[in-house]
Simulated assay, not measured.
Amino acid sequence: MDISGNTIFIPGSTSGIGLALALELRARGNTVIVGGRRAELLERIAAEHPGIGTVQIDTTDAASIASAAKQVLAEYPDLNVLVAMAGVMRVEDWTDPASFLDSAEATVTTNVLGPIRLIAAFIEHLRAQPDATIMTVSSGLAFTPLKVTPSYNASKAAIHMLSESLRLQYAGTSVRVVELVPPAVRTALLPGHEESENAMPLDAFVSEAVGLLESRPDAKEILVERVKFLRYGEARGDYDQVVATLNAVDPHGK
């Protein structure tokens, strides 16, 4: 995708990677609309960052996605980029069904159904644009599992394969599919993760990722250097070692 001159909707972006990406893309000359559940956060973002659009949306709710899509397209008819940012990550113990089932279902609803519903809501509009992009957001854990987050790993693997499949289906159309593949980043995705020494600083991640978008406008995957250890373990032939190394590290950095 071109790095400037776009109209971009990023739901699930009132904090963390989503908000940082929104602000960086805005600074690069794009019209950016952020979406989130909490009206007070959206109001604060609008006040602190004039020019950023805001739309209330709950990506776990199909009706909310449909309503938000209608609003976005009415207010921003030039929309040509959708960033399907929705994601939650929870520690689960799968030896006890009573402790993991609700978490697993909520994770799949947010991380898999959310992006699917978002794409369904916007694809007709995007296909009518001369140059459009769908950016999905997977994870290094789509390729190497973290023991304590089974549903998150599986949901991000699903997003990776969805991205691969949609790229095939949209070949020959105006819609490109690019997959952003973060490593561990210092956000509130897990409790205590914002200070983790084992996670990449947020600003550094977004700066490197947007730099890659700029230098490689036709890239299928956006891979910062730090995530390649997880992404290519199987291809390198050291997958078992990568799994062991990842799971020997406390995800909270303690």
Rank of each mutant, 00 (worst) to 15 (best):
D2V: 04
I8D: 00
G18R: 03
L19D: 02
L25Y: 06
R28Q: 15
R28W: 02
I33V: 13
I33G: 00
L41C: 10
A47Y: 05
E48R: 09
H49P: 04
Q56E: 08
D61R: 10
A62F: 09
A63Y: 05
S64R: 12
A66G: 09
A66E: 07
A68C: 05
A68W: 04
A74E: 15
A74G: 13
L79N: 00
D96P: 08
S99C: 10
L118V: 03
F122H: 02
I123Y: 06
H125E: 03
Q129P: 02
A132M: 11
A132T: 11
M135D: 04
L141E: 05
A142Y: 08
T149S: 12
T149W: 05
P150C: 01
H160S: 14
M161A: 11
M161T: 14
S163G: 10
Q169S: 11
V178D: 05
V181F: 14
P182R: 14
L190I: 06
E194G: 12
S207I: 00
G211A: 14
L213K: 11
R216V: 12
P217S: 01
K220V: 14
E225W: 09
R231E: 03
E234L: 09
V243C: 04
T245V: 10
V249E: 10
P251H: 04
P251W: 08
